[in-house]
């Protein structure tokens, strides 16, 4: 038997920073603890809870959003890094009240079950089509592999994305 002590004893200092974010076309000014990620800023400070936290470690893709049109993991992005950039979340992909074609195809093809990973999957799928990486099923599978789904809806997601691409609806501007 031996005794040991774990963990430190230092009280961290806290810094706040004012960040201007444009999310889904709407500008907002937030005063945030510098440690706040883009994911937590969206969820906890802007009330946009459609973007999900599945791991907070950049490994599951549930938090995928677009920053200046590129897909990023919002849990590995500090909110302060997004100053002056355009952020798009799942709440911002519908146009004029109509769902995005990828959203419609996910419903029609049953590309989800519990639905928790779904916003991230859809944000990846929209970007994937925009990146022109949806040419074949194997390409779709490969470039959707940063988004985990535990219910196991992968084949149906591939079918949904394939359908959007084949109908030529993939180039909807976000």
């Amino acid at each position: 038997m031996r005794a040991d002590i774990s963990r430190g004893t230092t009280v961290p200092e806290v810094f706040e920073t004012v960040t201007e974010l444009t999310v889904n076309g709407r500008p907002s000014v937030l005063s945030l603890d510098t440690r706040v990620t883009l994911l937590d800023a969206l969820r906890d400070h802007l009330g946009l809870v459609g973007t999900k936290k599945g791991c907070d470690q950049g490994a599951c893709g549930a938090c995928t959003v677009h920053v200046n049109g590129k897909r990023v993991l919002s849990c590995l992005t500090l909110a302060a890094q997004c100053e002056g950039r355009a952020v798009t979340t799942i709440e911002g992909v519908a146009r004029a009240g109509a769902p995005h074609p990828v959203q419609e195809a996910f419903v029609a093809r049953d590309g989800f079950q519990c639905g928790f990973c779904t916003p991230g999957q859809i944000m990846s799928a929209i970007a994937l089509i925009d990146e022109e990486r949806a040419g074949t099923d194997d390409e779709i599978r490969e470039f959707m592999s940063g988004n985990l789904c535990r219910c196991g809806a992968y084949p149906n997601m591939v079918a949904a994305i394939r359908e959007v691409v084949s109908e030529g609806n993939g180039n909807a501007v976000i």
């Binding site: 946009l48 999900k52 959203q103 996910f106 419903v107 029609a108 989800f112 639905g115 779904t118 916003p119």
Partner: peptide, 17 residues
């Protein structure tokens, strides 16, 4: 189609967190 599908794909289905 799932009746809860439109909510889930819109990010509008509320989970406990």
């Amino acid at each position: 189609n799932r009746v809860d599908g439109p909510r889930k794909v819109a990010g509008a289905a509320p989970y406990p967190s």
